[in-house]
Simulated assay, not measured.
Amino acid sequence: MTELRTRAPAAAPGAGTLLRLLRDGRPRTRSELATVTGLARSTVTQRVDALLASGLIGPAGEAVSTGGRPPTTFSFRPDARVVLGADLGATHARLALTDMTGVVLAQECADLDIALGPGPVLDWVIDNGRSLLEAAGRGEEELLGLGIGLPGPVQHSTGRAVNPPIMPGWDDFDVPGHVRRGLPVPVLVDNDVNIMAIGEHRVAWPAASHLMFVKVATGIGCGIVSEGNVYRGAQGAAGDMGHIHLPGSGDRPCRCGNTGCLEAVASGAALAETLRAEGVAVHGARDVVELSRRGSVPALRVLRQAGRDVGEVLAASVNMFNPSVIVVGGVLATAGDHLLAGVREVIYQRSLPLATEQLSIVSSTAGESAGVIGAAVMVIDHCLSPENVDMLVSGA
């Protein structure tokens, strides 16, 4: 005899579902929320009261009356909590305080070598995070969470770096645990290029379902947005295009241990090395950019060739992934259109016509703030998910 099994009824939408609707910025009445969610008016009132008590929403005026007393509308309050986003590069650190839509309220920047190790670098994040909170007149209890981008492979589920080539002492270090001892809030960690992709997607291309963000700086990496979400791969290594072998690159050694990688030829560090060999006095990527802005022919030449080299690797990715947008960012992209022109030249020449027919290849709109905005948005979307909001308003 076949055993009949009954499926448990789906749980009724909680306060988090209502907040997800209200995060689009449009005020709604209790009646509208009941219509959209299918909940009883009394249940909606209970959920709205919980969100009001948490401060996440507030009254937003009255709707047009259809007879009788005009109903009250409610809207999301982005300033109810604040978020910290940190973008840690190979030689720099940027930290921002944002509201719950990712709008930057204040920033702090510093030259900071990631090779100093997790203790000094993360303590800089903690100390300056507290300073930003204090300067903004916000308490630590108002901090929703903290997001961090690291310049190396990261296992997003644990927040730990995995065999990072330029980060001595960081391998398998418990980044969230260390930070939470100083700031006891949710801490999320990802690769720095992934958070840049998130930031650029939110700021400039929210409607783009398939986007690639390419960072060309001291190193080279790529963040992939697919169906509106970051694609990290099985172990968080997706998008590590800097260590793809570049045909014709010779045997130039790469910091990953291989030779002929794209990063060994076209990164800011590689271009500086090339120029030094020609007798040009440069130290790193920012010096290359400064020279190009002054019209240095050698600097402009290596930038254009770097764009072609990046385009060579991206052309295969365009055929494989078929993005609608490729955004080129990082410090070398601030040198003007020279790098971008090289990228476009090769992609449009080498990729399939169908894949490039609707493809936009553009410079970053968010610029150097892309990383901190993306780190903050990563935290916001996590902490304001319906499940986490339900726990927050219940006091869990």
Rank of each mutant, 00 (worst) to 15 (best):
G395A: 09
D127W: 04
L150T: 06
E140R: 04
R181N: 12
E290N: 14
M378F: 11
P253V: 00
T6V: 08
P78S: 10
L22H: 08
V48Q: 10
L122A: 11
P164H: 07
G85I: 00
R130A: 09
V289K: 06
V362A: 08
V372C: 11
R202T: 05
T35D: 15
V265R: 10
L150C: 13
L392F: 13
I373T: 09
L188Q: 02
E290Y: 03
A234R: 08
L116E: 15
C256N: 09
P59T: 05
V103Y: 13
V185G: 08
A266Q: 02
S65F: 11
V280K: 08
E108C: 08
E263Q: 14
A12F: 03
P151L: 08
T334E: 15
W124C: 03
P176H: 02
G367E: 14
L332E: 09
L21T: 07
I326Q: 07
H201N: 10
T29K: 03
S131Q: 14
G223W: 00
A269R: 05
I166N: 15
A264R: 03
H338F: 00
S31F: 10
V154G: 12
M100A: 13
V346C: 02
T43L: 12
D287Q: 12
V104G: 14
C222Y: 06
G330D: 13
L188Y: 07
P206G: 10
A266T: 01
V48R: 04
E3V: 06
T43F: 01
V230T: 04
L291M: 13
V44P: 10
T73N: 08
P78E: 14
L150W: 10
E357H: 09
S75T: 09
Q46C: 12
D123W: 01
P323A: 07
A136R: 09
G117H: 07
R81M: 11
V203T: 11
P27S: 12
A335T: 00
L116G: 12
N191Q: 06
H245D: 09
V389C: 07
Q358N: 09
H243E: 08
A161H: 06
C256M: 03
V125S: 07
T334I: 00
A264H: 04
G330I: 00
D111Y: 11
P9K: 04
F213V: 02
S292H: 04
R26Y: 06
D127I: 03
Q235L: 12
D240G: 05
D127V: 05
A10G: 05
A90S: 12
G236R: 01
E200H: 04
V377W: 03
E345R: 01
P27F: 05
G223F: 04
G182M: 03
Q235P: 01
S369R: 05
H338A: 09
R180T: 07
D287A: 10
L262R: 00
Q349E: 15
G68Y: 08
A204I: 01
F74V: 02
G89D: 11
P253F: 04
T356W: 02
T259E: 14
V372H: 06
S394W: 05
G25H: 11
A115N: 13
G147V: 00
L56M: 15
I198Q: 12
R41I: 07
I373Y: 11
W170H: 06
A90V: 00
L332N: 06
G371Q: 09
A110W: 09
G395C: 06
P353W: 01
R69Q: 13
A96Q: 06
G102A: 07
A270N: 08
E290H: 13
